[in-house]
Amino acid sequence: MENEKHHIVPYRVYAIVLLVLVVLTFLSIAITDIELGSYTVVGALLLASIKSSLVLTYFMHLKFDQPYIRIMVGFVLAVFIAVVIVTFFDYSFR
């Protein structure tokens, strides 16, 4: 088996990521107070996606892992999103 050396992530990186996550959380609460109509949800979901990609990349070490785990994660998310879209072929055209 090839040498898979372990990357030690410094504490500082985690602290910065947490800071960004907290800011994004407050941001998402703040934008719901602004009247944006249906864009409110889009905005909140967009921020949630950014937050989750931060968690995936740093907390879950995807950045430091071998690329195939990233590919798997991307594949799974793609399958899920495609399933949602195909489901809405029904509901949005009824």
Binding site: V83, V86, D90, F93
Partner: peptide, 22 residues
Amino acid sequence: GYFVWGHHMFTSGMSGTAQYTF
């Protein structure tokens, strides 16, 4: 195979678009 499930439901009353997509 993930995206063909609707062909079990052609008579269930789902939308026409979904029917021919599936």
